[in-house]
Design a binder for these strands. Structure first.
Lengths: 398, 398
DNA sequence: GTATTTTGTTTAGCGTCGGCACAAAGTCAG
DNA sequence: CTGACTTTGTGCCGACGCTAAACAAAATAC
């Protein structure tokens, strides 16, 4: 009777990631008949998830009847996304397609009790929901530390004063329940490492679109994080602890690292390492990343700054080459300081990686800067959207 | 009308990997009704892939009607598997369940022209098919080098005299066609790195059963290879070149490696490194792996041998810990020399890995020796079986 | 203005699976 | 030994979700 149930999720994902601008494309991408694609689109429209623009399209394409264009519903439901970072938090309502509908933030030192900031962030999100009157289908949280599965505990949150092992997912869920976010169940409310979520967002909506095996490396405040998307799914390892790339050795005579080794990427290629190499005294007033990025932008002509950048690029390249040998991704995206380093001198990094990875062919892997604002936040939203993308009917109730 | 088409592949895979001993288990594992599970089993039996033992089972289980037992059909179709190694080749016919039905081998120096040995191996396999009268559904090849996708070229086959970039898959397919293997199309005939295929075999039929993210590390003749199975599928990277783990740095003051760095796992933890560390002169008459394994087995009490073993275990542990940090597998399997080292002193390696991996939790990852004979050969067969496991009807024709 | 191409919709039909009832084959209790 | 209970296997029917095919619509091409 009702057509197009099984293909509902895949179809929504295509529209969500911008790969299905029309019903005709939907037909070929899903490998179904036009009848089914039409029914699927109608069902998604009835669910309020997408909109169909059936006006005569001005875009003169080729022959034949022009397609109606499919859009994500700009006034449709949203998810609540929150990100905790060294200087505060940011909250957003994110619609399908990674569209940020509303956002707000709070800054200041993160208290040692994670429940406090999570409650505050969720309250801010709840206020956004009230203001916008949007329906909320889930929530996602990004934290700047590893998140251990299956319990969602933050491990070693070095930049925050949180205790290691803090059960952030449980606390986040509790905060959502306390704030009375409608429809909150244990099934929604997902938590992940910020670099992992950056990778997810860039893969779906940014510079990683279309990549099969996408590797991301980023450095925010201290340390270096990595993430891997395989076949469209985040690979976070059996306990959620994969891609701890910070402890690859990139400088055998380097500084000692808290992990017991020396010359780890973590201490050799983060913003602090850059500032020290450039001979600058890091100040406490603004984040290390901001200081490093400003320096790169404003004083790149300074020989000392240039030399420090080259040094970090060489170290970073060594680490990335090691990852290329192990993971063989087809695209690499850099965030945070590493994005700035890449943009300052794209060729040097590519040359180092090509030189140190085993096969010239792999050395040719594209290395790109990340392309989304607030990518960790959008990634947290992706986590929350995932159940809807898997099966809209389960979440929205037939 | 005919029930159980969509679930045919998954059901066969369950029987194939020994996870569905009865129709009742099939029912729960597939998440279908008993009716569907029964129809699926009947269909697979009609296709000649499995057999059903409907005799009253002697195994007094619990209450209720005893299940009929499901077996892989011992007289069913096979695939042709071939392995090229430093000292010759081995060919086998492999049935479902990883059962080796017949095998033969040839030894001697591998000629510089890969086509020669491949033709000889395929001819030997063809002879096995003639002798046994089995139907052949595909063929797989294992080679001791990286295999670049999508063309199936052997890259840097160090232990063989082959030119780098030799198109082994194309040559293998040509040899199969020349030998008149029935039913050979470009869709069958798969080629892979031997350690990758070992991982696949161990995951399906050996010590890796049930693991979600399985990491394998092995050292055969020279160098160290790695492989990763994620969610039951081999991860070989976007160009088939993943898991080149040999160039992880494990000894900053170590020997120079052809990759340009020094102290790589490749030169610090292979059979030659062990023999040298133990003060033995490697002889040319038998493979380095055999010499090293014999030494470990017979002279482990010798302090020099013991010290060399401990040294290699420490280096290997460092390399594995790095991989654990990056990949976070839930099981690790060692082959070749590393298997012997593990069996000689299991606790030392586990302690090193736990000590150097970032999280104690991940440090507790089980490290096991491989458990199958001819695991690369069985893995090559798995590659050939894969289309059948994906959809038996496509291969066998409805 | 007519033919052609491509897209969207309607209707009919069919294949696959779930639900259910029933049969079969064992254990358990007396 | 007999009857109640539990679990497994199978046949029948209906519902769901898809394809196929015909038709209608909206553009371009000649």
């Amino acid at each position: 009777m009702e057509r197009g149930r099984g293909a509902l999720g895949p179809a929504l994902e295509l529209v969500h990631t911008g790969r299905a601008p029309t019903r005709a494309v939907l037909t070929s991408e899903l490998g179904v008949t036009r009848a089914t694609a039409g029914a699927v689109a109608a069902e998604l429209e009835a669910l309020g998830l997408i909109t169909v623009d059936s006006r005569p399209t001005a875009s003169a394409g080729s022959q034949g009847r022009p397609s109606h264009r499919l859009f994500v519903n700009e006034n449709g439901p949203v998810v609540l996304a929150a990100q905790i970072h060294a200087d505060g938090y940011r909250v957003a309502l994110v619609g399908l397609g990674g569209r940020i509908v509303a956002t707000t933030s709070g800054c200041g030192t993160i208290p040692a009790d994670p429940a406090l900031v999570l409650t505050e962030a969720v309250a801010a999100g709840s206020e956004l929901l009230r203001e916008t009157g949007r329906r909320c289908l889930g929530a996602g949280l990004a934290v700047p530390s590893a998140v251990a599965e299956p319990d969602g505990e933050a491990l070693n949150p070095l930049h925050l004063a949180w205790p290691s092992g803090a059960p952030v997912r449980a606390l986040f869920l509790q905060a959502l329940a306390d704030a009375g976010i409608p429809g909150v169940t244990e099934a929604i409310g997902f938590t992940g490492n910020d670099v992992n979520l950056m990778a997810l967002a860039e893969h779906r909506h940014g510079a990683g679109r279309g990549a099969r095996d996408l590797l991301c490396v980023a450095s925010g405040h201290r340390g270096v994080g990595g993430a891997l998307v395989l076949d469209g799914r985040l690979h976070s390892g059996s306990s959620g602890l994969a891609l701890e790339v910070g402890h690859l050795t990139v400088n055998p005579e380097g500084a000692p690292c808290h992990c017991g080794s020396r010359g780890c990427l973590d201490v050799e290629a983060d913003p602090l390492a850059f500032l020290v190499a450039a001979g600058r005294e890091p100040g406490p007033e603004v984040s290390l990343l901001r200081q490093a990025a400003d320096l790169l932008r404003d004083d790149y002509a300074d020989p000392g700054v240039r030399a420090a950048a080259d040094l970090l690029v060489d170290r970073l390249g060594l680490g990335i080459a090691g990852l290329v040998n192990i993971l063989n991704p087809d695209r690499i995206i850099l965030g945070g300081l590493h994005r700035s380093l890449l943009e300052a001198d794209p060729e040097r990094l590519r040359a180092v990686v090509a030189d140190r990875s085993l096969w010239g062919r792999s050395g040719g892997v594209p290395i790109l800067p990340c392309s989304l604002d607030y990518n960790s936040l959008v990634g947290a939203a992706e986590l929350a959207w995932q159940p809807v993308l898997d099966d809209p009917l389960v979440v929205l109730g037939r």
